[in-house]
Simulated assay, not measured.
Amino acid sequence: MALKPTIYKFRISLSDTNRDYYDSLSCTIALHPSETTSRMMARVLAYCLNASPELQFTKGLSSIEEPDLWQKELDDTIQQWIEVGEPAFDRVKKATRLAKHVQIYAFNSKADVWWKQSQGKLRTLPATIHCFDSDAIDALAANVERGMELSVMITGNSLFIDGKTSHEVTWETLQNNE
């Protein structure tokens, strides 16, 4: 019998001072049995960084044909393709053919090795690549509950997350294609 995903619900009060975007978000997220809580929280933070009414979580790990997040137009063209993790070059290349904008958010302790090995090829593609502070993501993930209310403020290259505990998660942009 296959394992079922664990469902998490987040209510997020978002203040993105970089984009002057303020919103109240309700997210129901399925944690795939093979996914870590750190990866799930990296998906949530990528969602906050790109929040818009059209941005959606996809089936993620359950469907290899879809990114973690995407934003589609009314005619079903993909405006934004957002991957979380360290995707292979071929996957990023495919994404750049299918979407107008591609963003990658690396999040774990192996991200620097992935970047060193892949940057030569990835620099040839029109993709924006970011890397979250892996220790901060792990600390945030250690305090996750199945239902949470969070306040997320984005300023500069920092996300300040307040819930039952407070965390700061920083990120670095490794390649900017904006």
Rank of each mutant, 00 (worst) to 15 (best):
A95T: 10
T36Q: 11
I29N: 04
P126C: 06
A88C: 02
A46W: 06
A88I: 09
F89Y: 15
Q119F: 01
T165V: 06
M40Y: 05
S13T: 14
R11K: 14
A88P: 00
H130L: 06
F160R: 12
T6S: 13
L150M: 09
D20T: 13
K116D: 10
A111Q: 13
M41K: 05
N157A: 08
I82S: 09
P53L: 05
Q79I: 07
S13M: 02
S109L: 04
L49W: 01
T37P: 00
W114I: 07
M41H: 07
S24T: 14
C48T: 06
S134A: 15
S158R: 09
Q79T: 10
Q56C: 12
G156I: 03
T36Y: 09
E65K: 10
V44S: 05
E54Q: 13
D16F: 09
V92K: 12
Q56R: 15
T170M: 08
A46I: 08
V102M: 02
N50P: 02
A99K: 10
A127C: 11
V152R: 06
K116P: 00
G60Q: 11
E86C: 15
I104A: 09
I154G: 01
K59C: 03
I12V: 14
T28I: 14
T77H: 14
L150C: 01
L174E: 05
A142V: 07
H167C: 06
K9W: 00
L150D: 05
T58I: 02
W115E: 03
L159C: 14
F89K: 12
M153H: 09
D23L: 00
Q71W: 00
E86Q: 15
F10P: 03
L14H: 12
D16W: 06
K164P: 00
H32L: 12
N18V: 09
E35N: 05
T165G: 01
T170L: 02
S158N: 13
G85S: 08
Q71T: 11
R91N: 11
F57A: 06
I64P: 01
T36K: 10
L61T: 10
T170E: 10
P126I: 12
D135Y: 01
V102D: 01
P53M: 05
D68Q: 13
P87E: 02
T124R: 14
G147P: 00
E73A: 15
I78E: 00
W115G: 04
Q56P: 01
K59H: 11
Q71V: 08
W114T: 12
M40V: 04
I82D: 11
K100F: 04
S52R: 02
A30E: 15
H101W: 09
P53A: 08
K4D: 07
W81P: 02
T58F: 08
F89I: 13
T165P: 01
W114L: 03
S15F: 03
L150G: 01
H101G: 07
E83W: 11
A106L: 09
D162K: 15
D112P: 06
I78F: 10
S166C: 13
P87T: 11
S26Q: 11
S34T: 13
Y8Q: 11
D20N: 14
L140G: 09
V102N: 05
I154M: 03
L98H: 03
T96L: 08
